[in-house]
Simulated scan of single mutants.
Amino acid sequence: MINFNGNLHSKDSYFLNQENRGLRYGDALFEAIRVVNNKVFFLEDHYLRLMASMRILRMEIPMNFSMEFLEEQILATVNANNLQSKPVRIRFTVFRNNGGLYLPKTNDISYIVEANALNTPFFILNEGAYEVELFKDFYVNADMLSTLKTNNKIINVVGSVFASENGYQNCLLLNQDKRVVEALNGNVFLVKGNLIKTPSVKDGCLNGIIRKKLIGILGALEGYEFEESAISPFELQKADELFITNAIVGIQPITKYRKKEYGSTVAADLLGKLNAAARLN
């Protein structure tokens, strides 16, 4: 079942048409959210990011769009799919309503909530082979729009095709200054000794929820030094560890980039702390 504006529809029903602005112009935002046993992980962070993004895109935020409303619609969709006792991936999509060309006729919005079962209730460390390469066909433009989770993800789509065609599990994206920005499906962190780095949002990376949580965790830990700073491709092969973060996987260690192979000791340490934060949130 799919939740469209509070009404539940079967997954094979047709409730959108060719005028949908998300389809026509990518005029849409989405949040990928993990839910376990009817508990929404990092609900406040997802809600605040969505509201901030809607304001930036000049979408009209409905009066009833509270954090409680968001949670209610997510759980209604989980329950309609009989997934209340399972870990679930939610996609909450918001798009501007039909009408207009580039200039919309209205800034009012609609939303869709989708729910799909996940395999594990908490984040686990995948230590299987995970090789990445730089994707250099196109670049991320480092501005505020690139930090939002919009439906304008064509570079991620083409990069994913490139990775699949060449036997990589993922690719790292570069900005116009040839700095490493993020992975195709999440933020990237680099470990060298006790130093942990991740690109700044000023470099054009997604303002990720798990990225934010790890920055908070690292700020309270002794034994690690943390920086938000640019990462050059040259640094990748000098690193001890590289890992990717997103709200569904948590932390994904990178095991190989070109001829360099990496460990996952720090990733495993931080994953335990991330799971603890998820249970407490």
Score class of each variant (00 low, 15 high):
residue 269 D to L: 03
residue 87 P to Y: 01
residue 46 H to N: 09
residue 3 N to Y: 02
residue 196 I to A: 02
residue 182 E to Q: 14
residue 2 I to H: 01
residue 235 E to A: 12
residue 241 E to C: 10
residue 119 N to P: 05
residue 25 Y to C: 06
residue 115 A to G: 09
residue 10 S to V: 12
residue 90 I to N: 04
residue 134 L to H: 07
residue 184 L to M: 12
residue 130 Y to H: 15
residue 106 T to Q: 00
residue 139 Y to E: 06
residue 134 L to S: 11
residue 127 E to T: 15
residue 206 L to H: 11
residue 63 M to K: 06
residue 47 Y to P: 13
residue 142 A to P: 15
residue 216 G to L: 06
residue 29 L to P: 10
residue 34 R to C: 03
residue 46 H to K: 05
residue 247 A to T: 08
residue 65 F to S: 07
residue 139 Y to V: 14
residue 132 V to Y: 02
residue 77 T to Y: 00
residue 143 D to F: 08
residue 267 A to T: 09
residue 204 G to Y: 05
residue 181 V to W: 01
residue 162 F to T: 13
residue 236 L to C: 05
residue 175 N to R: 02
residue 186 G to F: 09
residue 57 L to C: 10
residue 180 V to F: 02
residue 14 Y to K: 09
residue 281 N to K: 02
residue 63 M to A: 13
residue 207 N to Y: 09
residue 150 T to N: 03
residue 88 V to A: 02
residue 37 N to E: 12
residue 207 N to C: 13
residue 172 L to S: 06
residue 64 N to H: 11
residue 4 F to P: 05
residue 172 L to G: 09
residue 273 K to H: 03
residue 23 L to G: 04
residue 263 G to A: 07
residue 244 I to S: 01
residue 145 L to H: 10
residue 126 N to P: 12
residue 281 N to Q: 08
residue 105 K to A: 10
residue 228 E to F: 07
residue 113 V to C: 03
residue 6 G to H: 04
residue 70 L to I: 13
residue 148 L to E: 09
residue 189 F to A: 04
residue 22 G to T: 05
residue 150 T to Y: 02
residue 82 N to Q: 09
residue 218 L to I: 11
residue 212 K to T: 15
residue 201 V to W: 00
residue 274 L to G: 03
residue 239 A to S: 14
residue 129 A to E: 14
residue 71 E to M: 04
residue 266 V to S: 02
residue 253 P to M: 02
residue 215 I to A: 03
residue 2 I to W: 00
residue 131 E to A: 15
residue 131 E to S: 15
residue 271 L to Q: 08
residue 99 G to W: 01
residue 173 L to A: 10
residue 275 N to T: 06
